[in-house]
């Protein structure tokens, strides 16, 4: 049976998480990721399992026996793994944010991006300026390097 209440709750949680992920404060982005990961865990538990008390949908854990109902053990195992991995990710993201602040003096993602990335265009432009012969260049510089290195070695001898 469709779980309307759960669907509403999870939808709201994902929406809030997404909104936070789009913020410019790096800490809020980390919060957003944390909320989404919590909601995803809830979703997994919901998938198989009847939180509604429907006995047909609940499963007994093996030796608990005597009528006690538990959530799907396979889903439990999956979510358990996911919780721990979520912790690792959050910890890493936090320390990375801290490191970003140390390096750049800001945790504002907009400021961080203010020197825009123009990798492919810039590189392509350079290649065209070179006449598109990077390999030839390499060869030349190699040749040019060798005498210099030899000179240095000679200098060491003297």
């Amino acid at each position: 049976m469709a779980e309307l209440v759960l669907a509403l709750a999870l939808g709201t949680l994902f929406a809030i998480g997404t909104f936070l992920v789009l913020r410019r404060d790096i800490v809020r982005v980390v919060w957003g990721v944390a909320i989404i990961s919590q909601a995803a865990n809830l979703f997994l538990v919901t998938m198989g399992f009847g939180l509604t008390g429907d006995p047909a949908a609940d499963a007994p854990v093996l030796t608990a026996g005597e009528g006690a109902m538990y959530a799907d053990p396979l889903v439990q195992a999956l979510v358990l793994t996911a919780i721990v991995i979520g912790f690792g990710t959050t910890a890493f993201a936090l320390v990375l944010s801290y490191r970003v602040y140390e390096e750049n003096g800001t945790i504002d993602l907009v400021d961080l991006a203010s020197s825009p990335f123009e990798g492919p265009a810039a590189r392509a432009g350079e290649a065209r300026a070179d006449g598109g012969e990077p390999t030839a260049d390499d060869g030349r510089s190699e040749v040019a390097d060798r005498p210099a290195a030899d000179d240095a070695a000679d200098g060491g001898d003297h």
Binding site: F14, A15, A57
Partner: peptide, 23 residues
């Protein structure tokens, strides 16, 4: 941002409904 977040939320809402209505 709110519109995008709502769209994602609605997608999850629909997904949960679809996923829980079949077993």
């Amino acid at each position: 941002d709110a519109a995008l977040a709502s769209l994602v939320g609605f997608t999850v809402f629909a997904t949960v409904l679809v996923a829980t209505s079949a077993s």
